[in-house]
Design a binder for these strands. Sequence first.
DNA 1: GCAAAAGTGTTGGAAATACACCCATGT
DNA 2: ACATGGGTGTATTTCCAACACTTTTGC
Lengths: 256, 256
Amino acid sequence: MHMSLTDSKEKKHIKTLSVVQSEVQSSNRIGLSVDCVIFGFDENKLKVLLIRSDLKKFQHKWSLLGDIVSPNEDLDEAAYRILKKRTGLNDVYLEQVHTFGAVRRHPVGRVVTVAYCSLINIHHHKLNILDNELHWHDVRQVIDLAFDHQQIFDTCYQRLKKRIQEHPLGFNLLPKKFTLRDLQNLYEAILNTKMDRRNFRKKIFTMDILVDLNEIENNVPHRPGKLYKFNFSKYEKNELNGQKLIFELKYNKPAM
Amino acid sequence: MHMSLTDSKEKKHIKTLSVVQSEVQSSNRIGLSVDCVIFGFDENKLKVLLIRSDLKKFQHKWSLLGDIVSPNEDLDEAAYRILKKRTGLNDVYLEQVHTFGAVRRHPVGRVVTVAYCSLINIHHHKLNILDNELHWHDVRQVIDLAFDHQQIFDTCYQRLKKRIQEHPLGFNLLPKKFTLRDLQNLYEAILNTKMDRRNFRKKIFTMDILVDLNEIENNVPHRPGKLYKFNFSKYEKNELNGQKLIFELKYNKPAM
DNA sequence: GCAAAAGTGTTGGAAATACACCCATGT
DNA sequence: ACATGGGTGTATTTCCAACACTTTTGC
């Protein structure tokens, strides 16, 4: 059944670097940008950081934080740069989500944008927020963004909901010390669900990823809750050893 | 605590289209390409379609199928175009996976590439395969690809393993009519695991996504298996109604 | 009749759910 | 003292994993 291929085959032309180089250059009229969907958590609500569009055409609409990628920076670097510029934060959770490349997605011409999703502690950066052109929005009230940013936001929010059920990302949104109620509120807000308090605690403790700080919250008009922190190294160790998913929180029931 | 913001705030400069336009143009010296990781299934092995690099520097290495994105085609279109050109297939499963944008990832200069993952029935396109520069490789023997294609391949393969446990993608790799053994072989090959036949059948039937064709395979030296096809509409209906995941096949045990 | 894979049910353990009472604090 | 949410245990159900024998075909 196997025939010799050598006779029927045409040897493919091998290109030199410079040939390909000119091919690339003749077609690199496509702009490249990065847009960041920066999530924070405050007042038991999931928030997203938005800015007024700086384009006249979209002047009254909100948009994501984005910028053009510079020719000598890595894609990820660009995302970190934007995040740093707007929030002053380094070393935060940042994940590439999806690239949007429809021809007419941007009014200035062909710009392909790579969307990143970031989770930050909203209280770690009071800085540039006093500019009222930059604002935290309740995710439930995010509508009608500029460009195709609504679609980008929706995609990132969907991804967050999925990822947070499989990995302990939520801790990026909380202060270092938190109560179990804080943690549960976070998950309920993001997943738009209600969970049984006892079962939630059981599940989290079974994962063995919290450190009991032997402290309690204060100034609460009820019995104070114990404070915990996330045990990052323990989680990583578990993830390496057991190939089983250590963190799994799946809830399908909508709230109420 | 809330102070009036109006006095301290500097009104942001609103840019016109043309200002942004020139910003984009001055910085669009970044090439944009698409690379496709095309998976097929044959001889009970998961295969991936590779081509000899057309760059002299990488002349002896295999690489993914890719091309430059043209300024007037959508990103997804570019991926479909590449797939069509190489396999002759339309309307196949294609999914964007990740964008790779390290500054020095490509020798000809700055080229950012968007990786797509595709699943096709390997027997639907005998066409261009006789060119021995284009070849199906057993995924277990994919090493040392050109550029950063090894990393791209690894990322896509990882993604495939995950996605196929949550969605009925496997059917894209099988012929229209298949036996349950075929289906199980597919999953075992992709996930590199062994499953219990009885439990596998039970799980699949519970999902109620197969149509019994009342046919059996023939020319097998043992009792022939029944043939089924995938019931796409039924799956979609289930996915809409119940918000619960209908398709869930999780196996963590390695083979043997 | 024999080799080789198809087809089929049951059982035990683990995990998820549902659910109710006492406790510590601020007012 | 009371209002508020913190903290805990158990019974039930559901899901998953383990497992062995009979059936049908080609040779």
